[in-house]
Design a protein around this nucleic acid. Structure first.
Length: 271
DNA sequence: AGTGCGGCCTGTCCGC
DNA sequence: TGCGGACAGGCCGCAC
């Protein structure tokens, strides 16, 4: 579900309902997410006012004077704003209710997501402190990635999905950006020239921005809810298209597993 | 330090 | 129709 564009869309969607709102109550229905929700979290955040909301990689941050709530959606998580009286559904594990009666509700079937509390700056939290630059900022540029890649034997697709190199490039967009850049996903990261990294950096930014503009539309949701291929799905050049023909050259798109993740590419266009 | 893999979970889909 | 197994958009934590 949530790649960076969807997390960004979620942030934009929930911010108007939560900014400057005061937390009245937290309901934990199932604390067993990726890491257990700490017992003291409800008391920690109660009566706190949400002063700002941010995204860092795929982490959402709700900042208060006392500390920050860190939310990660994992593989299957989603957040919604609902009236506090709305009955919970299966897999609705966590609610944050404001004094205005709004409820931020976490739904996460696979429970790979996380809800954490930290009293310090969230950027000093163990999970965030070593994250690489945001892909949509100027810190993510070709000299930087080029330098980080020197000496790496790892293939480029795994390399750009490494959150310590750049945060927020998920499995779909890694394949898509490499297609746009014309780089073969199995090529060793340390053996790619600066000029090609410049193309790749621009491709990553381009594909993420395009997806954000479409509201972070994602595969499964779309095909499930209305049965039609989604907007974004129509723009995918390689992801999930094994056996189909390349939009650019007509060759057959190939599928390959790299680091246990599905990888798609055009053997003709990507070298 | 870099790399590769196991594991956390449920839901869905495919082949028998 | 039922059932087992593979697979799914993430990513930490560990062994080497």
């Amino acid at each position: 579900m949530p790649e960076l564009p969807e997390v960004e869309t979620t942030l934009r969607g929930i911010t108007p309902y939560l900014l400057q709102q005061t937390v009245k109550q937290v309901i934990i229905r199932n604390k067993n997410l990726r890491w257990p929700i700490t017992r003291s979290l409800a008391a920690d955040i109660k009566n706190q006012t949400i002063q700002s909301l941010q995204r860092r990689g795929k982490y959402l941050l709700l900042n208060t004077e006392a500390g920050s709530l860190i939310i990660h959606l994992g593989m299957s998580g989603s957040l919604r704003i609902l009236p506090a009286s709305t009955a919970p559904q299966k897999h609705d594990h966590f609610d944050l209710i404001t004094t205005q009666g709004q409820c931020l509700r976490l739904h996460d079937p696979r429970r790979f997501g996380a809800v954490l509390w930290t009293r310090k700056s969230p950027f000093e939290h163990k999970l965030l402190k070593d994250l690489g630059p945001e892909p949509l900022t100027d810190e993510f540029n070709s000299p930087y990635v080029f330098n980080r890649s020197r000496g790496r034997k790892q293939n480029i697709k795994v390399f750009i999905m490494d959150s310590k190199i750049v945060t927020g490039v998920g499995n779909i967009y890694a394949s898509e950006a490499l297609f746009i850049a014309g780089i073969h996903p199995a090529r060793a990261a340390g053996r790619i020239a600066l000029a090609r990294y410049e193309t790749l950096v621009q491709s990553v930014k381009e594909v993420l921005l395009a997806a954000i503009q479409q509201g972070g539309t994602t595969l499964r949701d779309f095909t499930q809810s209305d049965g039609k291929p989604g907007y974004f799905k129509q723009q995918l050049n390689v992801y999930g298209r094994a056996g189909e023909s390349c939009h650019r050259c007509g060759s057959e798109i190939k599928h390959r597993v790299l680091a246990q993740r599905a990888t798609y590419f055009c053997p003709q266009c990507q070298k």
